[in-house]
Design a protein around this nucleic acid. Structure first.
Lengths: 363, 363
DNA sequence: AAAATTGTTGTGCCCGTGCACAGTGTCTAA
DNA sequence: TTAGACACTGTGCACGGGCACAACAATTTT
């Protein structure tokens, strides 16, 4: 290994044994002042930096991580963070990190609580979770804190400030609303109207959607030059095509000047065939997430922009974060916001192609 | 380390010694058919995957990499791949990878050749290079091939197909031209004119720029709906402000309907004050690279879009690629194209903030 | 003064893999 | 019949750091 300094070298230089050097290095105590100073002096002179490989091998222990996310079989979105987690796992497995999944049924609070209790009973070192339900989420995290079980949040953020809180990895919803507004604004002419549409149930319970709307509105407040009007709407039963069509027809009649629509969820693909029907295909669409149906319409240029929130990276970085915390003993930024990529047909390939090929390293 | 399968376990299951398992694993020969089959069967059943940590520790050797890029002190662009390289190096150092830099003076062919010879004389395992000069680049790579010195290209691609060629990591210039066209097209009205402007010397020698132009033109050929006219121009002496102003003034007079400009290099910031002067500030600008001057105008909304070619990642992935080749003995895609990020004021923070915080792992 | 306690230091094994080397056993040629 | 060549197999050390434990010294207690 070339000329890298080893513990042995320091020991020799300081005139002590490697055991003593080790004690100094790890502050294990039981070292006389004289010995400690000799070692520290030698360390400084030789610029020792530990060999993480040998360290990882010797430090032969296992960490257990519970991954507590919505069931990916019900919502394809959650397949992506899971992929990211598995990808990262490959890299950190040899460092002794192991994972156990707990998939709660979406929108099923009881199941969330039940699985949560299961996790708390077991003996995990860290939990990765998306606290989908505010109240139950906080309750679970309180219990984690109580038994000193560290946790890291992804995708959904409940504000916490205790010792057990390792961090949040996700998107900035407000900023994504701003981004959508900027994009649509670029393609609109003076005096035209835009529309913000929530395709989701219980919008007011979802901080995400409220923040997206806020960002969207604020952008146009800050950019009054083109005098763009905003219509705010929502429609809950996204799968009820008949009524969605009626709803859109009515809205377009009332506001014939609507030239663009910002959908705050990933459900914008539902609109495309209906708008085609209504001869409104020139209406520009912006929404979220690179799911199959959206990609199809992006490719046909029926959707103008998709905003990518990097869900794969969410899972990936959660594991990386934990690795750094547990193995490297390094603390990272508590709040890590992922890029909001602007995706169009001409660059979509880079965001969908197997990210596995874009390899990553432990830093 | 929990229940990970070790060589020992396979040996036990197959009823042989770990030495034999090792010989099968590494195809070292000298194994009887019977023994080999027993081992292979056991390996399959136990789903063995080697412990890379222990492997790296035992396989106690050093690899030497020469990094052969333009001097970053002359061109700030090259600081970014260098940062990426150093970042990756931190992660792979302990795996025995070391780096030596060879910075050639930009546009100095002799210096390139001189340093190239120096590299060839020494005993490196891999070269990372940006072959800025086609002829000299090929000559250097021929010699590499002759003495079986592996090489990986970044940023600039010379087509090669020999054993020593490990891969190319960079951007797809044609696609970036398409991307720029799509973005401008979105913000333009029927019958308007756009302009493509090369701010660089010797455009025809630079494949990059030619390809960008091609992509830009092809987009409008494929999208004739808005009937956008394209003016093709170029200006070499970018630092000669007086003449650049005269040039722009003349062009705008000749083509008063120009509503947007695509600059094929990172030099678009030079245009902003001049366009302001000429009362052409509503003219939309698209160009490349997140350098300081461009970012300033992006933030002031004088530049509409910047296309990010991820130069830091270029360097980073070059090292990752080499790591996988040398340490993991895995072959990766030869051609790896980096994302073309669409950057505007509302998401610029994600592409400029210290990427070190977006951590990566070895896969 | 002897025994017990505490403080300090060094030794040696462990982690899982790579690889050199020393065995085995078999077969051929003298 | 035996030496030598050859194919195959097992053993054991090395890699560098973590850590348990033994050994020894210094101090306190009885």
């Amino acid at each position: 290994m070339k000329d890298r300094i080893r513990i042995k070298d320091i020991a020799k230089k300081a005139g002590v044994s490697k055991g003593t050097v080790d004690r100094v290095l790890h502050n294990r105590g039981n070292v006389s002042k004289i010995a400690r100073e000799k070692v520290q002096k030698a360390m400084k002179e030789l610029e020792y930096s530990p060999n993480i490989i040998a360290s990882a091998l010797a430090y032969n222990r296992t960490w257990r991580i519970a991954v507590f996310l919505p069931d990916y079989r019900n919502d394809p979105f959650w397949r992506q963070p899971r992929t990211g987690i598995n990808l990262a796992l490959k890299a950190v497995r040899d460092f002794g990190i192991s994972i156990q999944y707990f998939d709660f049924r979406d929108a099923d609070k009881n199941h969330f609580v039940e699985l949560g209790d299961q996790i708390l009973k077991d003996d995990f070192d860290v939990v990765v979770l998306a606290p989908a339900f505010a109240k139950e989420g906080h309750e679970f995290l309180d219990k984690c804190q109580a038994q000193n079980l560290k946790y890291i949040q992804i995708n959904t953020y409940l504000e916490r400030d205790d010792e057990a809180f390792l961090g949040y990895i996700g998107q900035d919803s407000y900023q994504s609303g701003m981004l959508a507004a900027k994009l649509l604004n670029f393609g609109m002419n003076s005096g035209e109207t835009t529309m913000i549409l929530h395709l989701e149930k219980a919008v007011n319970n979802s901080m995400h959607l409220v923040q997206k709307q806020q960002g969207f509105e604020d952008f146009f407040k800050e950019h009054p030059q083109k005098n763009i009007q905003i219509i705010k709407t929502g429609f809950e039963e996204v799968n009820d095509k008949v009524n969605l069509r009626l709803f859109l027809e009515k809205t377009c009649q009332e506001h014939p000047n609507v030239k663009s629509i910002f959908v705050t969820t990933s459900k914008l693909f539902h609109l495309v065939p209906i708008l085609n029907d209504l001869k409104k295909e020139e209406c520009k669409l912006v929404g979220f997430d690179l799911i199959e149906e959206n990609l199809k319409y992006l490719n046909e240029e029926k959707i103008s922009f998709l905003i990518n929130q990097n869900p794969l990276k969410q899972g990936y970085l959660a594991i990386v974060h934990i690795f750094h915390h547990l193995v490297r003993k390094k603390e990272l930024k508590k709040i890590q916001l992922l890029p909001l990529d602007v995706v169009i047909r001409e660059n979509v390939q880079y965001y969908t192609e197997d990210e596995r090929e874009q390899l990553y390293l432990i830093v």
